[in-house]
Design a protein around this nucleic acid. Structure first.
Length: 577
RNA sequence: GCGCUUGUAGCUCAACUGGAUAGAGUGCCUGACUUCGGAUCAGGAGGUUCUAGGUUCGACUCCUAGCAGGCGCACCA
């Protein structure tokens, strides 16, 4: 039930009517006409820009046109209390109290579906996110993208789209060889008491490898660890398995579960890379050539080679991109092209990739390949999540990968918990860098938006508790005819924005709008609550049972929306804190 | 140098796919607990939305150019 959509439809209907009967001229598309939330200083519930959009084409002043439209609107709607035309030509509509009574009933009766866009086409999405190398635990850098992807999925699913969550496992290439060697040296450290080589920069230094090594030794008692070359294949598989187990644990503690894990190695061994390159070759997107040294590299160190290149410059990229290494192995990009071909073949309406800021430069390349593979019909959307700056004791602290002492997802969850991590990571637009202040995140005050919103829900729960009612169970509406105060109307207006918030979050893939909205709603609620301190009549539990019952329905409506939103964000709504 | 991205109150950020007098928190100042939960609330002060042009009835939002910060610019992944 989106009242803005409802009234937009009404307005358009009236326009068509006026156009056929009174000579109103309409443009080809009515898309520019909107129904919006008026600024709070106006005593009004919905506003529309219709008169300003149509004034030029009709050669009339916006205000004159607005008066005509306002009259027509008022005439066929008994729920409008008054309608006003305000410069530069907005039409503002104010509803009668009965409108809101109906509204509340509607939401209470359709608690589970309020906010869902019932008009739009439902799509089938594939979202790829996290996809961190299977060489160790997830760290803070992965965390934001992980949560972003998960909550985008939740928003889309809430809006009845179909979404498949996928993790691309980079289990092929040099990094994996180095990683496996590192595990091997840790095994030798244990079985042959040889020290781990500290001078080899290619090896992974992290302590977690010691656990990997021990686990592999324990569960492979018969394995002979003497000669690396004899066991490298098997050991690679075992090492990756260990890493993936750890990563899945990390994701699980963030509350994230992917539907599929797609192995790069399998794509390679199934010859999907060759096939896709054949295809590109036939369509003249691939050639043998040389690329120039990157600007960051000294020309002296750069060796120009002839190699297999993809014409990404045809699609706006800076340079063509290498597909094959000098040793004949595929580049990461080549197998990723195969992976995207694989995605395209599965016929999704949209492909979404969530990338970290440090991979943003990769977008042109991969979207070029999708364009080449799909004749520019691939509908790939890349979403970048900016860096997270960790702050403790008012100071930023950096993590250094070299020493292996970076902050892991585990560290984060242990310190601040899953709920706070999710809510705070999501509270800002993914386009801006995020300050993640440890002291702030665990603080229990208004400064911490998670608690502020949860507290709102807990307060409502406490009212129900006082009356021996259960907030979670359904509430009955019999003769409900609440006469709303101004404070209540303000809250109702905010509630009516919820479908708009979901729409924006869903269409623009901007889930931060949800925590922002919930915070605003909670803020209005806390003000409303405090009215009861000075004026006992404003309290929810009233001597008159009818008033108490009506107010409970009102509170139930608020808690429904809070609960919906918190579920999408993926955090709890405790009834006591 | 090139590409992407950000620039809004002292600080951290919002602003509904171009709407009206740009909003919150924090910090600073002042006030409210015998209460349905003070993890809260009320009030005050704080702005040339980086700059210069352009498009538009209307620009924080779109376009062009510049300035400043961040990220990236491999046969790595």
């Amino acid at each position: 039930m989106n009242i803005f959509d409802q009234y937009l439809d009404k307005i358009k209907k009236i326009l068509l009517d006026l156009s056929s009967n009174d000579g109103l001229i309409l443009p080809d598309s009515l898309d520019g006409i909107t129904a919006e939330i008026p600024p709070s200083k106006f005593d009004s519930d919905i506003s529309t820009n219709v008169a300003m959009v149509l004034s030029k084409i009709n050669k009339k002043s916006p205000t004159d046109l607005a008066s005509v439209l306002a009259d027509a609107l008022k005439k066929n709607d008994t729920l409008i209390e008054n309608i006003s035309v305000i410069n530069p030509g907005f039409i503002n509509i104010k509803f009668k109290s009965i409108f809101w009574t109906n509204f509340v009933k509607e939401i209470i009766n359709h608690a589970k579906t309020f906010g869902i866009n019932t008009k739009e086409k439902k799509n089938n999405y594939l979202i790829e996110f996290v996809s961190a190398n299977p060489t160790g635990p997830l760290h803070v850098g992965h965390c934001r993208g992980a949560i972003l992807g998960d909550v985008i999925t939740n928003v889309l699913s809430f809006n009845k789209h179909r979404v498949t969550k996928e993790y691309y496992v980079n289990d092929y290439g040099n990094q994996i060889i180095n990683f496996t060697k590192s595990v091997y040296f840790r095994i030798r450290e244990k079985t042959f008491s040889e020290p781990f080589p500290s001078d080899n920069e290619d090896l992974y230094p992290g302590d977690y490898l010691i656990d990997f090594a021990q686990n592999i030794i324990n569960s492979n008692k018969k394995m002979d660890f003497e000669d690396f070359n004899k066991i490298s294949g098997e050991l690679t598989a075992l090492s990756i398995e260990e890493a993936l187990k750890l990563i899945k644990d990390n994701l699980n503690s963030l509350g994230i579960k992917h539907d599929n894990f797609i192995s790069e190695k399998k794509l390679v061994s199934n010859h999907e890379v060759e096939k896709v390159i054949d295809f590109l070759q036939k369509n003249k997107f691939v050639y043998k050539g040389k690329i120039k040294a990157p600007a960051s590299e000294d020309d002296d160190n750069w060796v120009e080679r002839e190699q297999l290149l993809f014409r990404s410059t045809d699609f706006g990229d800076d340079k063509d991109r290498a597909l094959q290494k000098s040793d004949g192995a595929w580049t990461y990009f080549a197998s990723d092209v195969a992976y995207h071909k694989n995605k395209l073949d599965r016929k999704f309406d949209y492909l979404i990739n969530i990338l970290g800021a440090d991979h943003a430069g990769y977008i042109k390349r991969i979207s070029s390949s999708v364009d080449a593979l799909s004749n520019s019909k691939g509908k790939l959307i890349c979403k970048v999540s900016q860096l997270v700056k960790l702050i403790k004791d008012k100071k930023p602290f950096k993590m250094s990968k070299r020493k292996g002492d970076y902050i892991t997802v585990d560290d984060l969850i242990n310190e601040v918990g899953k709920d706070a991590t999710r809510f705070i990571m999501l509270n800002r637009s993914s386009d801006v860098e995020l300050d993640f202040d440890f002291d702030n995140v665990i603080e229990k005050s208004k400064e911490n938006p998670l608690y502020y919103v949860q507290y709102c829900y807990a307060r409502i729960a406490s009212v129900f508790r006082h009356l021996d009612r259960d907030l979670k169970s359904d509430i009955q509406i019999n003769n409900y005819d609440f006469s709303y105060s101004n404070e209540e109307i303000v809250i109702l207006k905010k509630i009516s924005e919820w479908p708009k918030c979901i729409d924006a979050a869903s269409n623009k893939l901007e889930p931060h709008r949800i925590p922002t909205y919930l915070y605003e709603l909670a803020s209005l609620f806390h003000s409303y609550w405090n009215l009861g301190k000075e004026n006992p009549e404003k309290r929810f539990i009233n001597v008159e049972k009818k008033i108490t019952d009506d107010k409970l329905i009102f509170l139930k409506m608020i808690s429904n929306v809070i609960k919906s939103g918190m579920d999408i964000v993926g955090v709890s709504t405790p009834e006591k804190m």
